[in-house]
């Protein structure tokens, strides 16, 4: 049976620590754009932890929400691409083929989650920072759109290892870098087609909802909202 990779983000666990952000940079060879470019809105974070303030001092709270590519089933970014650089792959991933990308950036506009990032210049790694690069992940050149892949290089490796041993990928044995790093275990990754997988069971949680669900993009990430404390517990 085909895999359908999905994720659950448990907002009750997320502490906003951003371990996922740097883990993603390290795993996926994201360029550091530098202060000047960051000031111009070119910082690249495939996963970001959105922070929203609620209320005013002193009755103030914060909502953290990790946002990464939602790997939509009906991804608005895909159809608009003239060269099929953005398309749905066989695992239900919203794939981005860098070599096909000509840089219209239309996908970035069509994406309602703003999780697509563009290489405005050739990425630079000042020597010897290039030694940190992950050889399993291709580098993107100037003019190319990129985005979260659910660490497709890890998925590929796990699939070929499983295939060699003629077994399915065991639930929990495969994680993208963000989920692996997350101290609080707020990010749960797995196969939605396997009803016994942790991600499939958590996706069915009554706490669950999708981000901008009403747009109908069928995102494969489920957000579990925070569990409220009731005064009756007192």
């Amino acid at each position: 049976m085909a895999y359908r990779w999905g994720m659950v983000v448990d907002l009750d666990r997320c502490t906003g620590c951003e371990a996922c952000v740097t883990a993603c940079h390290a795993e996926n060879n994201l360029p550091t754009v530098g202060a000047d470019e960051a000031a111009r809105g070119r910082a690249m974070h495939w996963i970001r932890v959105e922070r929203y303030w609620e209320g005013e001092f002193p009755d103030v709270r914060v909502k953290f929400r990790p946002v990464l590519c939602q790997q939509c089933g009906n991804a608005p970014c895909e159809a608009v691409c003239p060269t099929y650089a953005s398309h749905q792959n066989e695992d239900g991933l919203n794939a981005q083929v860098y070599n096909r990308c000509i840089g219209t950036r239309y996908c970035g506009n069509a994406c309602m989650y703003n999780v697509r990032f563009f290489n405005f210049f050739h990425p630079q790694w000042e020597k010897p920072l290039q030694l940190q690069l992950n050889p399993d992940v291709s580098l993107r050149e100037s003019g190319v759109m990129e985005k979260c892949t659910f660490c497709v290089q890890r998925i590929k490796a796990a699939k070929s290892a499983a295939k060699a041993e003629d077994r399915a990928i065991a639930d929990g044995s495969l994680q993208p870098a963000c989920a692996q790093a997350c101290p609080a275990g707020a990010l749960v990754f797995g196969d939605l087609n396997d009803p016994e997988s942790r991600v499939a069971r958590l996706s069915a949680s009554p706490r669950g909802s999708k981000l901008l669900e009403d747009l109908g993009a069928e995102p494969k990430i489920t957000y579990l909202h925070r569990q409220g404390w009731h005064e009756s517990n007192a």
Partner: peptide
């Protein structure tokens, strides 16, 4: 060449996890 740091699942403190700074220790 070390390319990525992950928490060591066998270690009692990190338990296979790593914080934002630990991820950057490679640099």
């Amino acid at each position: 060449l070390p390319r990525k740091l992950e928490g060591d699942p066998a270690h009692g403190v990190s338990q296979g996890r790593l914080c934002v700074r630990g991820q950057a220790a490679l640099q």
